[in-house]
Simulated assay, not measured.
Amino acid sequence: MKRIRKFFSEAISELRKVAWPTSGQIRVLTVLVFVASLVVGIYITFWDLLFTEVLKLINPA
Score class of each variant (00 low, 15 high):
37 S>K: 07
47 W>N: 07
60 P>H: 04
24 G>Q: 05
46 F>S: 02
46 F>Y: 14
38 L>W: 08
49 L>C: 08
56 K>I: 13
57 L>H: 12
41 G>H: 01
46 F>I: 02
57 L>R: 12
46 F>K: 03
47 W>Q: 00
52 T>K: 15
17 K>A: 10
46 F>C: 03
60 P>M: 02
10 E>I: 00
22 T>F: 03
26 I>C: 03
17 K>I: 01
57 L>E: 09
5 R>C: 13
31 V>P: 06
6 K>T: 13
37 S>N: 08
57 L>P: 04
32 L>D: 15
1 M>L: 12
37 S>V: 03
2 K>E: 14
16 R>I: 13
45 T>F: 10
17 K>W: 11
51 F>P: 00
51 F>H: 00
27 R>L: 14
51 F>S: 01
22 T>V: 00
48 D>R: 00
9 S>G: 12
1 M>Q: 11
21 P>T: 01
11 A>T: 08
47 W>A: 05
1 M>V: 13
14 E>P: 00
48 D>Y: 07
8 F>R: 07
46 F>N: 00
24 G>M: 10
1 M>D: 10
26 I>N: 07
31 V>R: 14
37 S>I: 02
22 T>D: 04
42 I>P: 03
58 I>V: 14
49 L>H: 12
29 L>Q: 14
58 I>Q: 04
7 F>G: 05
42 I>N: 03
56 K>E: 04
